[in-house]
Nucleic acid binder design. Structure first.
Length: 677
RNA sequence: UGGUCUAUGGUGUAACUGGCAACACGUCUGAUUUUGGUUCAGAAGAGUCUAGGUUCGAGCCCUAGUAGACCAACCA
């Protein structure tokens, strides 16, 4: 068998190259390095799946490392939540590491830098130092402390460590290059003083390393071969390498930082800081609110680990900015749940249905398939009786032929039960429907094998027996934001796009009694409605269900849209400049010579129409289009014809362009040119 | 106005050392269906940001543009 022509992402290609260049595969090692200052979200899931996926692919260890160098923001709660989420996704880390475990080593290395005259203690204020740093376009100036003696630096750093100074009074800086075009190389800070207890080291330290000093060195200590991070750290690579240059022992592996684009999802945000704001301002109920893009939010909502891993896998990894449509995530969870979820019935917006020819007091237990997607999933029993609830939207007194549901005089099947026909309605004085009366074809019971049971009717409805139904709360969710990219607007913040209707609580839904025994980990499909799972707010006798995601609904698409699902104004990240008519013409023209017949004349018409919006000033530069780009020249010729007919004066440029075109070997071009010459 | 990175259907990714742009989602048909679900069959949709160049041949190479992202926290 030939190997499948598998395509590698660019990071896998880099690793393959390193392997080919002599890196031994058993040296491969990865890490996932979250800062414990918030909960993990779906973007982190991409990074987790990437790193742990590489670990699985190359049979290499993957460390979980908490980047805990800022005691002001970090908490044990977050450490615990992060571990829980990674485990839930199904990954096992080789070692649980903490940057804080390396504080002593980092300190020793800092001393080493000072002794080599590569670092110095600066006692200027943050403002002054910022001033001296310059801007991306102007070089910085050196600190007056830059050339202090090694001994003085050693002494000051020692006293920083001992806690003799106030926060902000002194920092340790690397001595690199205040004129570098990379701002991070302008004598970056290695240590600052923070008088806050650390969640692991307590009061042991009062100086803390900054990210750049801690991260690469931690990678080095752990002998991580490939340190993968998001694109915003690209600039840090130069510093990462500089630090390693100062202390790398050639007998040890030297870590390599590479960057990939973070995963963005449409209609949500992926910033821990902003998610924290949603939590703190009570826009959501917490980090695990089912509307949150966090892993814990998705879990609570009913997503499976498999679906999130599938999503990360199918979305892939690259270096370009992206906004992945949520529909891809929704596809992944539906695909998984379709195979797993137990089919049940529940009515969220009930209206009473009376089967007038069904005996009062009679109860039948009907068999209902647990999962038609799975052979041996079995059945469970659903009680059927004279009085039922069905969804209000499933009945109309009269409707067009495209409406497959219950109307007066038309037949539909009650799922797993009988075929019924609408007969009459009972209304209150305001015209609201109180009851629907129907008759059942009593021979048509599902599975009875009778001829009537085989009859086909257009629609099938779900239902519950009123007398047997259990009541439960059902929470339905919509996207949290109304904008596709809520945090990418210059004039507005993400808070301006909060969807006021993102949560819909159905206080009293009616569910089949089977659901009374539901457990937290169960996944259900409420037939025709969507996938649901128990929420943690459930208590004995008062269940709460979360709607994970609806079923695909090709009926709803035809009907008028319920809400703001579409957002016509595309913020689109990258403007490729196809907007103006001239660009359109160029685009059409390119393939002009490949066209024939109707398509050709349509393209010609199109160009002529678009040419109405083109100015001569814009068109003229295209006169010197390369000779072999015949299509483009035809387009230009056609557009020029339109301009001339509108009164554009002929000039030398026009005449020589047309002359040349009319003599061209391509007939299409020459004839168009001759026509207007 | 400095530096770095990126640019392929509506979206996300492919295309190995150049060889007539592929896959998934989404969209639209049709069939199947006791879920307007699923499944199956099919269709439409880009000629690869622009212009020039090298080449028999360019999404891949070269040049010049354009657009977007990132960089001046004692955050990570």
């Amino acid at each position: 068998m030939k190997e499948a022509p598998e395509s590698l992402n660019f990071l896998e290609q880099i690793i393959e190259e390193d392997l080919a260049a002599g890196l031994s595969q058993d040296k491969l090692r990865f890490r996932f390095p979250p800062e414990p200052n918030g909960y993990l979200h779906i973007g982190h899931a991409a990074s987790i799946c990437l790193n742990f996926g590489l670990g699985e692919r190359y049979n290499a260890p993957v460390n979980l490392r908490f980047d805990d160098t800022n005691p002001a923001k970090e908490e044990q709660e977050y450490v615990d939540a992060i571990k829980r989420d990674i485990q839930w996704l199904g990954f096992k880390w080789a070692s649980e590491c903490y940057s804080s475990d390396y504080f002593q080593q980092l300190y020793d290395w800092a001393i080493h830098l000072i002794k080599n005259d590569k670092a110095y203690v600066d006692g200027q204020s943050a403002e002054v130092q910022a001033e001296q740093k310059g801007t991306p376009t102007t070089p910085g100036v050196e600190s007056p402390h830059r050339n202090q003696s090694v001994d003085e630096n050693l002494d000051l750093f020692e006293r920083m460590k001992k806690g003799e100074f106030e926060p902000g009074s002194y920092v340790l800086r690397a001595k690199i290059d205040m004129t570098s075009s990379n701002m991070l190389m302008r004598d970056p800070i290695l240590y600052r003083i923070v008088n806050k207890p650390h969640h692991r080291t307590g009061d042991e330290w009062c100086i803390y390393p900054l990210y750049d000093w801690a991260h690469g060195e931690s990678d080095y200590i752990e002998q991580v071969s490939h340190s993968l991070c998001t694109l915003e750290f690209k600039m840090h690579r130069e510093l990462y390498d500089w630090f390693l240059d100062q202390l790398h022992d050639p007998s040890l592996l030297r870590p390599k930082q590479r960057e990939f684009a973070r995963r963005n999802l449409s209609y949500t945000i992926m910033s821990k800081r902003k998610l924290l704001q949603l939590v703190q301002e009570n826009v959501v109920s917490g980090w695990d609110d089912p509307r949150m893009p966090t892993i814990s939010g998705h879990r609570r909502r009913g997503y499976t680990p498999e679906s999130i891993r599938k999503f990360s896998d199918v979305a892939g990894i690259s270096k370009r900015d992206n906004i992945t449509d949520v529909s891809l995530l929704e596809f992944c969870i539906r695909e998984d749940l379709n195979k797993k979820a137990t089919r049940v019935m529940g009515v969220l917006n009930p209206v009473k249905l009376v089967i007038t020819n069904y005996p009062n007091g009679k109860v039948e237990m009907l068999a209902m398939e647990n999962n038609p997607e799975e052979e041996n999933s079995g059945t469970h029993e659903v009680p059927f009786s004279r009085e039922l609830y069905i969804e209000r939207e499933d009945f109309k007194e009269e409707a067009g032929s495209k409406y497959f549901r219950l109307t007066l005089g038309k037949e539909v099947r009650l799922k797993s039960a009988y075929i019924i026909k609408g007969e009459s309605v009972v209304k209150d004085e305001n015209g609201n429907i109180l009851e629907i009366h129907c008759t059942a074809d009593l021979d048509s019971r599902s599975g009875s094998g009778t001829e009537a049971s085989q009859r086909r009717v257009k629609g099938t409805l779900h239902w519950v027996s009123i007398q047997h139904a259990i009541k439960a709360e059902v929470r339905e969710y919509d996207r949290l934001f109304l904008d596709e990219a809520p945090d990418s607007h210059e004039d507005k913040t993400f808070m301006d796009f909060i969807n006021p209707n993102s949560l819909n609580v159905v206080k009293e839904a009616y569910l089949e009694p089977f659901l009374a025994d539901a457990r937290m980990e169960d996944k259900f499909q409420f037939q025709r409605l969507g996938y649901f799972t128990l929420d943690k707010d459930s208590i004995e006798g008062k269940l709460v269900f979360n709607k994970t995601v609806g079923l695909r609904d090709s009926w709803a698409k035809q009907a008028p849209k319920p809400a703001q699902t579409q957002n016509p104004a595309k913020p689109n990240t990258q403007n490729q400049g196809h907007r103006n008519p001239l660009n359109e013409i160029q685009k059409i023209s390119k393939k002009y010579t490949n066209l024939s017949g109707d398509k050709l004349s349509a393209a010609r018409e199109n160009i002529l129409k678009l040419a109405e919006g083109v100015s001569y000033e814009d068109l003229e530069p295209l006169f010197n289009t390369a000779a072999k780009k015949v299509g483009t020249r035809i387009g230009v010729t056609l557009a020029l014809g339109v301009l001339l007919s509108k009164g554009q004066e002929r000039n030398e440029a026009i005449n020589s362009f047309l002359q040349e075109a009319s003599e061209d070997g391509n007939e299409l071009l020459s004839s168009e040119a001759k026509a207007i010459l």
